[in-house]
Design a protein around this nucleic acid. Structure first.
Lengths: 298, 298
DNA sequence: AGCGTGTGATACGCAATGGATATGATCCGC
DNA sequence: GCGGATCATATCCATTGCGTATCACACGCT
């Protein structure tokens, strides 16, 4: 059975007349008759009842007609969808991100991409940098937002924005009264931190800043994720240095203060496979670039 | 585009290897390559990425693969369904019936048919005899249960059962105390009745029985359907003569009593188009016959 | 009643096309 | 660097889908 049989059958079933159906198909009548007969033989049932004068649908034909129309519509849709997918208008993309990427900028990228490609499903995965690199290499992820200097041979990356370091401290902490806090003022404070491998890029900059200010931070408590860090700050366990712009972690009992000198910054990079060809991924990267570019102009 | 293209594409997409896919299709490799290329040209997008060494799905190919599998499964199902429809295992049937057909016997027929042909949708239409005859002639109905002597040239009919006439009267009516009531005892009672054209077969027998008992019934109130007739009886407006076995109309405030002499009976017939060929209709008639036959033996 | 017209089926020839074989181009592993 | 693996290309052949001519038959008109 071929789609041709279905096309021919639908024409005959709609016209109930072999001659007219053949004309509609730009075909002569005898081959049409033969194709219908072949179809009936293959199906194993008579679909059309034809005496010499008129053609009518048998019950089997009525059942087949409904299915045939569906199949033909579906086959056109299949081609159309493949074409759209090839243009990146349709599909899915798996995006990894570190928690500290959940800034307004990242939200703007996702919002803008959804506007540009409403039929692409974006799947988000909160993952540590090394997980993301593994995921990108193996194909589980298509794009990653992370802070490591990515030197993996299969991957490429670009800096999308830079975050300054800010101090997170309980609202009732004495230093919270100041508009800005110097690094030396926090030298002897108890710190909350995530483990090294969670954010190696950030940690390197953080420890270097401390060293420059003449102290080694005392980590009072480790927590495995940023929300927990902020929660521990909020309940007074200690203070923490984090990246700026973490809108998603804002809460009343915690205040964020710029640090002086404000020099130390950490890069947020977007990474993807070097051999990437998916137009969806290309479009996502393009939206990422243009969105952060526009944000920088404001 | 033909189903062949889809079959070939699915094979290649599953094997990710032209040689193996060709073997699976009992085909040599070059024509397979050509058909895939043709498919890609028609769709307008590259579906497979092949360097000389390996084959992999492009995003467009992944989208197309899902659709292609659906279409192929569907096309097999289409043929299977047509075959089943030709055997009367699948389909629909439009059944008309007069209200007084809603007896246990009719319920048993419907129940038995559903058991025998669970995938046939039975659509029921409560209609007057003339409506049914028009419906059968025009094809809106396939089968009708009615009481007219059906002499329409295009239709055939068979008696399925005979109903005796019974008296419906309010539970507190004096005659309700008797186990049976004679025709002469109701000569001067006020009657409730449906209009003549609603049930001409029944009315003829009813008036003839009254005439034999020596009276012409006084119709106090007409109602357009049997449930209303029974309701009017229940509230004491009058009494009514109806057919026996109307289980669906039983209610506490109305009692049914046999009439003496019990001679007068009305036929319930099943009618269908003389040229009917639908195996579903044939099966329905066969179930009807066997069900009433078995009921008669009990 | 007979003939003409309309309609689907049949017969048959041709040409388009799907498939086979042979070969080429290129990549990868040893 | 060579040999094998793999997909593409070239070319030929056979299948088969299509067109023309014709048939068979039913219905309607005169």
């Amino acid at each position: 059975m071929e789609l041709r049989h279905l096309r021919y059958f639908v024409a005959v079933a709609e016209e109930l007349h072999f001659g007219r159906a053949a004309a509609r198909l730009h075909l002569s009548q005898p081959p049409l008759s033969r194709q219908i007969r072949e179809l009936e033989e293959e199906v194993g049932a008579q679909l059309l009842k034809r005496d010499r004068r008129r053609v009518e649908l048998m019950p089997a034909g009525a059942a087949f007609l409904a299915e045939a129309r569906e199949i033909l519509a579906r086959s056109e849709r299949a081609a159309a969808r493949a074409l759209r997918a090839s243009r990146g208008e349709l599909g899915e993309i798996d995006v990894g991100f570190v928690t500290s990427a959940t800034t307004d900028a990242f939200a703007a990228i996702l919002r803008e991409f959804h506007r540009a490609r409403p039929d692409v499903e974006v799947r988000l995965y909160d993952q540590m940098p090394q997980q993301q690199i593994d995921g990108l290499s193996s194909g589980r992820l298509d794009v990653g937002f992370l802070r490591l200097p990515v030197d993996h041979g299969l991957l490429r990356s670009e800096v999308v924005w830079r975050d300054s370091l800010v101090l997170a401290l309980p609202a009732e902490h004495p230093l919270a009264k100041q508009q800005r806090v110097s690094w030396t003022e926090i030298a002897s404070e108890p710190f909350i931190s995530v483990p090294w491998q969670q954010s190696p890029g950030f940690q390197t900059v953080f420890y270097e800043a401390c060293r420059a200010a003449g102290f080694v931070p005392h980590i009072k408590q480790y927590a495995n994720d940023l929300p927990t860090v902020i929660w521990l700050v909020s309940v007074g366990t200690g203070i923490a240095v984090v990246t700026g712009g973490l809108a998603s972690l804002a809460r009343p009992s915690v205040v964020f203060r710029p640090l002086e000198p404000s020099g130390p910054q950490v890069d947020m990079v977007v990474a993807w496979r070097r051999d990437e060809t998916s137009p969806v991924v290309e479009a996502f990267l393009e939206v990422t670039r243009s969105t952060v570019r526009e944000a920088a102009l404001e």
